[in-house]
Amino acid sequence: MLVTMVEQDSLTLTEDEAALYDRQIRLWGLDAQKRLRAAKVLLVGIGGLGAEVAKNIVLSGIKSLTILDHQQVTEAARCSQFLIDHTAHLGHNRALSSLERTQLLNPMVSVSADAADVADKPDDFFRSFDVICATCCSEQQLLRINDLCRANGSLFFAGDVFGYYGYMFADLNQHEFAEEVQQKVKAVADAGDGDGEPAAKRSKHSATETVTVKKTMTFTHLKDALTIDWTAEGMAKKAKKTPDTYFITRVLMEFCKVHKRAPRVSSLESDKEALTKLRHSLLTALAVDESLVPQDFVNFCFAELSPVCAVVGGVLGQEIIKAVSQRDAPHNNFFFYNGVNGSGMVDLLC
């Protein structure tokens, strides 16, 4: 393009933007919208969950989205990856194949795609982003990107969906945010003062008012959540109260580490067998009760189910919006969704 878009005045929103974002500005306010339109986001991995996240944050009006993914479009992507034209792109790169539809979601956001492998990207590459959201990554890459985000002062998110199960993780380091809280207001003592409205006529005011307060929240690194010592005192009890999706996810991450891929339907039976074995070996290694992961989880963890991606991607997308706009208390540090029993929990694990 010859004429690049003139750097928009960061102070003012155009009337076009005001019209497009009207319904959300009425919810989170103009300041939040201005912070969003300054945010540069890197999305690593664009499977079903990645597509949901991309949709949600591009619609919200961030400044730019870079999609980084070296994987190819597979048959299983048809279960949830709606940003790809599946009739044309089987076997093509996922990032490049998703570019056109992602851009169409919101012409005001600058969207780009990169077909490189995240493992090949030098550390410097990650410096230019305000937010990095990593999906479909190996544990090693997740930990590396988390390190880099801490070093660069950017916001780190991770997430994945396996069949009916999904999670989201956030490390916002030291995060400052504004929160609206209800404060009690002193009731008007007698009817003699005030506006003179007789009690029967006065519309019933609640005895609280909303004030905005500034708060800080401290997050931990992903490695702290993956190296919990479950043998420590009181931890057996905590394990029981931890959402089962945490342990299910750990088994699936272990599978990905061992097999260098997620479970897939083309090797359904052998993958199920391998998962059952890993359930036993991993939970034994973690020294937690094996029953924390239901035995039949292997029947529900293949491909990415679209409605599950929608739930996890909705929560993850909203957490990115929250963190960028520095409004409202973020979920610290995990959200787990279990589509088999319907539970959706936030838990702090470190």
Partner: peptide, 18 residues
């Protein structure tokens, strides 16, 4: 006007299918 955002709608539509 009841404010409306993509993420809430996405989550609710997901739960609807579940």
């Amino acid at each position: 006007i009841i404010p409306a955002i993509a993420t809430t709608n996405a989550i609710i539509a997901g739960l609807l299918v579940m």
